[in-house]
Simulated scan of single mutants.
Amino acid sequence: MSGDPLPFPRERADPAPGAVHLPDWLAPAEQRRLVESCRAWARPPAGMRTVRLPGGAEMSVRTVCLGWHWYPYGYARTVVDGDGTPVKPFPDELGDLARRALTAAYGPDGRATVAGTAGYAPDIAGTAGYAPDIAGAAGYAPDVALVNHYPHGARMGLHKDRDERTDAPVVSLSLGDTCVFRFGNTETRTRPWTDLELRSGDLFVFGGPARFAYHGVVRTLPGTADPALGLTGRLNITVRQSGLA
């Protein structure tokens, strides 16, 4: 979407066991449909809001939640840190898209073959060629999505997605401006990590040994989105299975 100077497509990357980057996974028409859906989800009530952390700082991204409302650090059925209204339902289209994403990342049998990952993290050192068993799409029941809008200058510090009561994989979709995404290890916020360029239409999935790895957005690259999207900044949709009743 942002233009690739090379005459051939970017290739799949497996930065850690269970972590998969599939460039250009969403077709342009799918991207445009998702941007329009995000606009509808962002409208009040239970619309997009700025999240305030317990220490008082505000996140630089703005967020709207679907299915369950995420707040630091838990889930609720209402926007407890906003207008107090019921959270919007989790859309079937995102559930179908997430199951399709798992099949693309891990294959129909739910196994992820990972190469070249030796020394990635202390608990999985020497795992080159490791193929972890990860639940396939058939058993995946996502019920929550976070839609984050990154205006110019926004970033996301290294963190773990650990408020869910399950280790089911996280599916992440990028729309709009390109970002530098940092995927770290499961032990600390320090190295080793891998920096990846996520462009509009890219898919990133992390599950299995990588499910609780630290990750974040170092920076976005303003003006890299396809003008046809009509989008300023970056949208990131993360789909998860909460494990909540």
Rank of each mutant, 00 (worst) to 15 (best):
W70F: 13
F204A: 05
A121W: 14
G116R: 15
V80K: 12
P227C: 08
E187M: 04
K88Q: 14
G184Q: 13
L34Q: 01
A46W: 07
W25Q: 04
V80H: 01
L97K: 07
A121Q: 09
Y73F: 15
V171C: 06
G184K: 09
R234I: 09
V87Y: 11
R199G: 14
L198I: 13
W68D: 00
R39H: 13
T127G: 11
V35G: 00
G153V: 04
D167C: 03
G110H: 12
D92C: 01
G18R: 08
I124S: 03
G216P: 13
D4Q: 08
A118P: 00
D123N: 12
P72I: 00
R162Q: 06
G67V: 09
G55K: 10
A225Q: 11
W193S: 15
D83H: 04
D163W: 05
A137Y: 12
R32W: 00
P151V: 11
V79W: 00
T238I: 06
T127K: 08
V64M: 05
D96Y: 01
G82Y: 07
N185Q: 12
D92S: 12
A141W: 14
R32M: 04
G216S: 11
G82L: 07
W25N: 04
V170L: 15
L146N: 05
P227I: 07
L22K: 02
P17A: 06
S37I: 00
G136T: 06
R240Y: 12
K88S: 02
P7R: 10
V80D: 02
A228P: 04
R155G: 05
Y106L: 11
P7V: 04
G74P: 00
G129D: 03
G176T: 05
G3S: 11
R165A: 09
S2G: 15
G47L: 13
M59L: 15
Y71Q: 07
E11S: 08
D226S: 13
W68R: 12
Q241C: 12
R43S: 09
W41L: 06
D4R: 12
K88C: 07
I237N: 03
L198F: 15
A40V: 14
M59P: 01
Y71C: 08
L235K: 03
V217Y: 10
P122Y: 13
